[in-house]
């Protein structure tokens, strides 16, 4: 059986969870076994509905301790659930929660784990999964050589597939240890599309000359319904918050559309964005290295191109 950890935030599921569920269902289909989901803590949603991502059963551990996250406690509960259900493959989303638990789970279950996975397993002669290495500049095919296997699925690496069906919900009674990590505050970025979940991203660099010009970037992002990002010098100069920095040492993203304005495209920046499906580069320097990695390019002044492009997008959308 393939067990997918369906991570929830404030009682709700996110895109990365649906990707993990769809992926896990496909892995199960490939292995000729069932896919089942594991949910921890209180949820506001009807768990039967997770069936539409291909799972036949949802195991729910309802203990309230699980409403705040402690990697040690989550690992203990997920490990017990794996043992109780006899799961042979465990799928988690490689989001912030997944990164906190995947390694722990691997150590606890003595199970091989592949982080930042981007492919279905090749099971023709073993169990081999492709993963991102060198910050997106290459891939490695990793063989998982233990009885239980853990896959931490990279974001935007697998398409959500909705099917017909509802899942049976079963309450799983697992004793839960007391949490050692106490959550004292949470600050959610509201009203914006989280960068890691965005299907479209508009990003800008030093070519914008100063934070006061970011309205141009924001307008295009709004027209495209895209999240905002920036290059490292921009975040380092304090023009934009650090959580918008994409690149080798910032966030790695893989949206369907990445628009880069006034970013030269240093190799460290490319490492964070080169898994984007389509890259549009706007730069006045025709020699900017970013054009080599782009699908579409506009050689022009960002201060002229951005407003014009925003107009054209709005026209296209009939605004």
């Amino acid at each position: 059986m393939v067990l997918i950890f369906a991570d929830q935030t404030d009682g709700q599921f996110k895109k990365t969870t649906f990707e993990a569920l769809s992926y896990g269902a496909k892995v199960a289909e490939q292995l000729g076994v069932h896919a089942e989901a594991l949910v921890l803590g209180t949820v506001n949603e009807n768990l039967n509905s997770l069936g539409k991502y291909g799972v036949t059963k949802v195991h729910h551990v309802r203990n309230e301790v699980l409403n705040s996250f402690d990697a040690q406690v989550y690992t203990q509960v997920i490990s017990e659930a794996v043992k109780a259900t006899g799961a042979k493959v465990v799928v988690v989303a490689h989001n912030n929660t997944g990164r906190a638990i995947a390694g722990r789970l691997s150590a606890r279950l003595k199970a091989a784990m592949v982080p930042a996975a981007v492919s279905l397993p090749d099971t023709t002669g073993g169990f081999i999964v492709k993963k991102v290495v060198f910050s997106g500049k290459a891939f490695a095919n990793v063989s998982l050589n233990t009885d239980i296997k853990i896959i931490s699925l990279n974001m935007n690496a697998f398409k959500i597939a909705a099917v017909e069906g509802t899942a049976e919900v079963s309450v799983l009674d697992i004793p839960v240890e007391a949490a050692k990590v106490k959550v004292v505050a949470t600050n959610k970025v509201t009203g914006e599309i989280p960068l890691t979940e965005a299907t479209r991203v508009v990003s800008a660099g030093r070519g914008l000359k100063g934070p006061e010009n970011w309205g141009l970037v924001e307008n295009l992002a709004k027209a495209l319904n895209a999240a905002l990002a920036c290059s490292r010098p921009v975040a380092d100069s304090g023009w934009r918050p650090h959580h918008e920095h994409v690149g080798q040492t910032g966030i790695a993203i893989a949206p369907n559309l990445y628009v880069a304005a006034g970013i030269s495209g240093a190799i460290q920046h490319l490492a964070g964005v080169n898994r984007s499906k389509v890259i549009v580069v706007i730069n006045k320097d025709p020699e900017a290295p970013f054009f080599k990695a782009a699908d579409y390019g506009v050689v022009g002044d960002v201060f002229e191109v951005l407003p014009k492009l925003t107009d054209e997008v709005q026209k296209f959308k009939g605004v």
């Binding site: 998982l144 782009a294 050689v299 492009l309």
Partner: peptide
């Protein structure tokens, strides 16, 4: 627990399509 079988480089980009800034 795991072994790397081999590495792959991403397929090269087909090349950039340039668009005139006056024809967005």
């Amino acid at each position: 627990f795991t072994t790397i079988q081999n590495f792959e480089l991403p397929p090269p980009k087909a090349g950039v399509k340039l668009i005139n800034p006056d024809n967005l």
